[in-house]
């Protein structure tokens, strides 16, 4: 890839949009995942009593529900990213490639 080509892509409006949106989206989702997981670990380390709280009158504890929720949320977050990437980001990439005549 020649330098001129590199500069041309870097200036392309669709490329800029793609990079800007994906970087922001990826950063936000990474942040959410870190907060969820280290929030859970933080509760385990600092507030065991809260996690031992029973749900209703049953045996299951809040900690159990939250633990399973961390697993489910991790999966959902990846799903959200993939859906967005397959739609919006792939569209932008396709537009960019069209602009470049590929």
């Amino acid at each position: 890839m020649a330098n001129i080509e590199t500069a041309r892509i870097a200036q392309n409006i669709h490329f800029k949009e793609l990079v800007h949106e994906r970087t922001r989206f990826g950063t936000i989702l990474t942040g959410i995942m870190l907060v969820i997981y280290f929030g859970f670990i933080g509760l385990i380390a600092f507030d065991k009593a809260l996690l031992a709280t029973k749900i209703g009158s049953g045996t299951a504890s809040l900690g159990l529900v939250l633990g399973v929720a961390v697993i489910v949320l991790a999966f959902i977050l990846t799903g959200i990213y993939v859906q967005r990437a397959n739609g919006r980001f792939d569209d932008l990439t396709a537009k960019l490639k069209r602009d470049l005549g590929q």
């Binding site: 990826g26 950063t27 989702l29 990474t30 995942m33 969820i36 997981y37 859970f40 670990i41 385990i44 996690l51 504890s61 900690g63 159990l64 633990g67 399973v68 961390v70 697993i71 991790a74 977050l77 990846t78 990213y81 993939v82 990437a85």
Partner: peptide, 24 residues
């Protein structure tokens, strides 16, 4: 009991990070 879940969650949450930052 519950403590087993700490490992399960720890092993899983690396994957979203791999996806958001590395995989593509």
């Amino acid at each position: 009991g519950f403590d087993g879940l700490i490992y399960s969650t720890g092993f899983l949450v690396g994957w979203p990070i791999v996806l958001f930052l590395i995989a593509e």
